[in-house]
Simulated scan of single mutants.
Amino acid sequence: MTSPLPAAVTAILLAGARPIPDPLAQAAGVAVKPLVPVGGEPMINRPARALLDHPAIGQVVILTQRADLFAADPATAWLADHPRVRFEKGGQGIASSLLALLEGGDVPFPILMTTADHVLLDRAMLDQFVAEASGADVAVAMVERATLLARYPQSRRTWLKFRDGWWSGANIFWFGSDKAGAIVSLWQEVEQDRKKGWKILAAFGPFALLGALLRILTLRSGMARIGRKFGLVARLVAMDSPEACIDADKPEDVMLIEAILQR
């Protein structure tokens, strides 16, 4: 059973740059990846519009190292002028940037965080995620492999295996209260190993690691156990839409996204 929709959710849109040059940005001749054209416009525009058009979203905070680039580009200048959008300075890591933002005290909970390369983000995804995440201190959107491959068998993702399937992140996160700070702090510690699933699991304790390796944990029960460890409510949101875990990370992703947009 889901909780009533909150009146105003703060959305954080990650639009930063990695320390090393991004291949998509280099190929497109733009300074940062969020400005890479996808479907005829900079990729950041579509998730930004999806957030601003959703009735549960209040303000949109764009976290980036180079706000000036978006204001200077005619295709994204509308973001700098929008009354419900503000830019905040990001650092080199997502978790450290988020912690700094939360410690500033002027970003109200609940918070929904997503990424500028989540080009296919839409109303249906946000409806499901906000409804199912509401009431949790922390929630993470994931897509089960069968859901994705049933429609897009050619798509390649990073998967974590549990007893209830193979799961991939959908780049949508929920921070429902200040209790989430403990999880974000841990995230900061393992951020450099985000593609190495066993290291992330190990950070939550040996039971979580062994549970995944021996397949004695479902992802849902694992999330609940992690929540209890930190004294909070942690929840998995298993997304219905396979498009929820397709982001614009590689050239083949962009080709797939543009084909979906054309349909």
Rank of each mutant, 00 (worst) to 15 (best):
A7S: 14
I12S: 06
L14A: 13
A15F: 04
A15Y: 03
A17T: 13
L24Q: 06
A25V: 08
A28M: 05
G29I: 05
K33Q: 15
L35N: 03
P37Y: 01
V38E: 05
E41I: 05
E41W: 01
P42H: 01
I44Y: 00
P47N: 08
P47Q: 05
A48M: 03
H54K: 08
V60I: 13
I62V: 15
L63A: 13
A75G: 03
A75V: 04
L79Q: 06
D81F: 00
H82Q: 05
R86I: 08
E88Q: 14
E88V: 15
G90S: 10
G90L: 03
A95V: 10
S97G: 11
L102E: 07
P108Q: 00
T115S: 12
L121R: 04
M125D: 04
D127W: 08
F129D: 03
V138Y: 05
A139G: 00
A139H: 01
V140Y: 12
E144F: 01
L149A: 02
Y152C: 12
R156V: 15
W159K: 03
F162Y: 14
R163M: 08
R163H: 08
D164A: 02
N171T: 05
F173P: 03
W174N: 04
I183P: 00
V184H: 06
W187K: 03
E191D: 14
K196L: 14
G197W: 06
G197V: 07
L201H: 12
P206W: 05
L213Q: 12
I216V: 12
G222F: 04
R228M: 09
L236C: 09
V237D: 01
M239T: 07
C245H: 08
C245P: 06
I246H: 05
A248T: 07
D249F: 08
P251N: 07
I257R: 04
A259R: 15
A259E: 14
I260L: 11
